[in-house]
Nucleic acid binder design. Structure first.
Lengths: 121, 121
DNA sequence: ATTAATGATAACCATGTGGCTATCTGTTAG
DNA sequence: CTAACAGATAGCCACATGGTTATCATTAAT
């Protein structure tokens, strides 16, 4: 029992991966996507830098960052009185998985079409 | 002048491709994404079939389909009194482009890291 | 010709959410 | 020790939007 519980906790920690739904919802907002893009481009940034860039109030930026964080898209690091945020490398994998899944249906359909066209020769 | 106008119109028609922003916004809604996924999986469907599947009212489905259409994700075909919708094959390319763009930053960063690690040897 | 069915539109409502200001906590500077 | 600063939280508000029902237009069926 104890071991099982320990394993469960372990899974909870490691499988923090967000779903494609979370990623879609989170990146749908232009401001939030812009913040994420900047973090991807420029690397680690403080909240203050991001606030200057985004052109909205600091609390708004903090809220967006919290949403991004809860979707696993960014990670924060506290240093003194400032917080540094950076994009999480593997966070877009749910999106890649989703795309490859539904891209696969088209591929399949294109293959069928190609097959059909070849039979018509 | 006339020729220029003609060219402009031509561009307007062909460059109907949606932006990544449109695609994100459109696919953020779970119901809409579910409809799109079904169209990808099952191929062409009538509004009535989609309504039965989605479990919401027919007008709601029509509205979602209109949004999907305006984002270029689906295409409609009228046959008698029913309308058939199907997923548009190339419609997710803005998403792929966006992903490859911001995936590229990570790749670049990983390359830099790898480079750095090699220099440390 | 009348009725039924399919889907789009209109009008409306409830809810979610992105923005703001004000405030609180914790950290650095003077 | 006090002031300034970085950031998060709370509370509020305006607006967007996803859902509903009612209705309209068009096409098929009886």
């Amino acid at each position: 029992m104890v071991i099982i519980n320990r394993i469960t906790v372990q899974l909870f920690i490691t499988v923090k991966t967000a779903s494609a739904a979370d990623v879609f919802r989170t990146l749908a907002d232009p401001t939030r996507r812009s913040l994420f893009e900047r973090l991807c481009r420029e690397g680690e940034q403080t909240v203050w830098m991001l606030t200057r860039y985004a052109g909205i109030s600091q609390p708004a930026v903090s809220k967006h960052l919290a949403v991004l964080k809860s979707a696993g898209l960014v990670r924060d690091r506290h240093a003194g009185r400032e917080t540094h945020y950076r994009a999480e490398a593997q966070s877009l994998s749910p999106l890649v998985d989703w795309l490859s899944l539904y891209g696969a249906f088209w591929r399949e359909r294109l293959d069928r079409l190609e097959d059909l066209l070849q039979r018509m020769d």
